[in-house]
Amino acid sequence: MTDTASLSTDVAIIGAGPAGLFAAFECAMLKLGCVLIDALDEIGGQCTALYPEKPIYDIPAHPAIAGGDLIAALDRQIAPFDIPRLLGRRVEELSGTRGAFTLRTSTGDTIRAHAVIIAAGAGAFGPNRPPLEGLEAFEKSGAVRYYVRRRADFAGKHVLIAGGGDSAVDWALSLRDVAGRVSIVHRRNRFRAAPESLRQMDEAVERGEIEKLVGYQLHGLHGNDGVLDGVDLITLDGEVLHVPCQALLPFFGLATDLGPIAQWGLDTVRGTIPVTPSTCESSMPGIFAVGDVASYPGKLKLILQGFSECAMAAHAIHPIVHPDTALHFEYSTSRGVPAA
């Protein structure tokens, strides 16, 4: 749905990433009408925008599934319900109280809903960019990238990956079979990735599949007209190492911003929304948060935990929409998928 809309629904879901899509499914299974709203032009959130080809290993029943394939599967799951989507716009205003909210978007849509689920992930996000002279020209040409959308773009190239977290290590492992050469640079020999990923990287380094450069930081870029031919690294003592390469992938994390959500009167803590763990309801009655944006003691930022939160939120919303109807929990195997 792309035209300006004015609609009424049971639940307005802000965010169409994995948590938002599964929240729509859980609501639909309880026969709650809903609409998906997202600032991006396509569904999937970070899975689509940042790592559509990157394998995810902790989705139940999937030993490995690419981010894009996960989104496609979630999309197929909600297809029978024909849920409206307002994409390419963000919710600028939210007013009202539990049972009667009004949302207005950046393109002039008006949505009235009994409850709201915020599944906004990390909010608006962008990369932390390294302070390197001439960086912009190489960004425009694609020689410096902060996301990998197609591994094939790096076929045969010497790729230098900078960073010490999961993204850096995971992409070094993923690109070693595609790129001509993969090097990973980090300021210290202590990486902050998952233990199994670190084990695989160490084995790949021993086999010569990945070159590990530790004790260095990015220092300078070499090339002309956006064509990268090398990167200078530097130690704390000022020793410079030149690494010939055709692509640089700096993974220094994301700068995130809740945007207008932070102005709606919700309690927030370091860019997240604290919720009651059993219901995922925020400090404002009738507004719920699920996925990475939700926080509570013991919270794990895993997609699978976000899925569980979606189910809890949908069940907590049912009495708001249907206060006079008791909800008798049934397994999906016994009730099937209700008619849209």
Rank of each mutant, 00 (worst) to 15 (best):
P319I: 14
D292N: 10
G291I: 13
M312V: 10
K301C: 04
P297R: 14
A326N: 05
E281Q: 10
L300K: 07
L300F: 11
P297D: 10
V290W: 08
F288I: 06
A339R: 11
Q305F: 13
A314C: 03
R335E: 04
P285V: 10
H318R: 15
I317W: 13
T333D: 01
E309S: 05
L302T: 02
G286P: 11
L327K: 06
S283H: 02
P297V: 14
K301I: 06
A294N: 02
K299Q: 06
A313H: 05
E309I: 14
E330N: 01
L300W: 10
L300T: 07
R335N: 02
G291N: 09
H315D: 01
K299P: 06
E330V: 06
V321H: 14
S308M: 14
V290S: 00
D324H: 12
A339T: 11
E281V: 05
Y296S: 05
S282R: 03
S283Y: 01
K299W: 11
I303N: 00
G298K: 15
A294T: 07
A314W: 09
A311P: 00
G291H: 10
I287L: 02
H315F: 09
F307A: 04
H328F: 08
S295R: 13
V321A: 11
A326L: 09
L300S: 00
P285H: 08
G298W: 15
F329I: 12
G291V: 13
V337R: 08
C280E: 02
I303M: 02
C280H: 09
S308W: 15
S334D: 02
Q305Y: 12
P319A: 06
A294V: 12
S295N: 10
A316P: 05
P285M: 08
C310V: 11
M312D: 04
T325M: 09
P285A: 07
G298S: 11
P319C: 07
V321P: 13
E330R: 07
S283D: 01
G286H: 12
A311K: 03
H315W: 09
T325V: 14
A326S: 07
G336H: 10
E330A: 04
D292T: 08
G306F: 14
V293R: 04
I303E: 00
Y296E: 04
G286Y: 13
L302D: 00
D324M: 05
H322W: 14
E309K: 09
E330P: 01
F288Q: 03
P323L: 09
A326R: 11
P323S: 05
M312G: 00
F307R: 05
T333Q: 02
P319V: 14
S282Y: 04
K301V: 07
H315C: 03
P285T: 09
G286D: 06
P338C: 03
I303P: 01
A313V: 09
K301N: 06
F288P: 01
G336F: 10
M312F: 12
P323D: 05
D324G: 02
P323R: 10
L300P: 01
F329K: 08
